[in-house]
């Protein structure tokens, strides 16, 4: 296991989104999630760092940052959801997909992934009303035309506890 002593949120995220990674590196992604949970201001700092990476002009860096964001939403609980559910962060995602901001310079892959994530959170986190507001604004602007079909495991809905596998 990697030596975690002295690692900061920033250093974990730099490793998790390093453009020279050949594939997503889950050791670093989970290291970042764990560090968020350890720090008092973890979620606030993490969303700021993530927004910066998601706006990277390098597609692979941005895609990895979105994977990290998705992992944090699954592993860092309500404290993290609350930060993502603020316009301060949501606006940073909106900037990436909107042609009025960065949208024209960003790959379709990154934009599609952002829209899928936003939609999955509107389904899984109905109490985070600002996520819905942001998503519906993108629809009104025509940036989102139809709701994406998000696989069930991409949403945050926990699996039913007593799923009968062998009825």
């Amino acid at each position: 296991m990697a030596e975690a002593e002295g690692e900061s949120l920033e250093s974990w995220l730099n490793k998790a989104t390093n453009p020279s990674n050949r594939q997503e590196d889950w050791e670093y992604i989970i290291g970042f999630c764990d560090q968020i949970n350890k720090e008092l201001e973890g979620p606030q700092i993490a969303v700021r760092l993530l927004a910066h990476k998601i706006q990277s002009p390098q597609e692979w860096e941005a895609v990895q940052a979105l994977t990290v964001l998705e992992a944090c939403m699954k592993n860092c609980g309500r404290r993290f959801h609350n930060e993502v559910g603020k316009f301060r962060f949501l606006n940073e995602l909106i900037k990436v997909v909107s042609p009025k901001y960065l949208g024209d310079r960003v790959s379709e892959k990154v934009k599609t992934k952002i829209i899928e994530l936003l939609y999955s959170w509107t389904v899984a986190l109905p109490e985070e009303s600002k996520i819905k507001d942001a998503y519906h604004m993108l629809k009104r602007q025509g940036i989102v035309q139809t709701d994406p079909s998000v696989p069930a495991d991409r949403t945050l809905i926990p699996s039913p506890p007593a799923r009968p596998k062998n009825p």
């Binding site: 606006n91 600002k130 507001d133 604004m137």
Partner: peptide, 15 residues
Amino acid sequence: LGEESEERDDHLLPM
């Protein structure tokens, strides 16, 4: 109080 003022300052991006 801090949280309340943060809430007031949190606006959707103008489009």
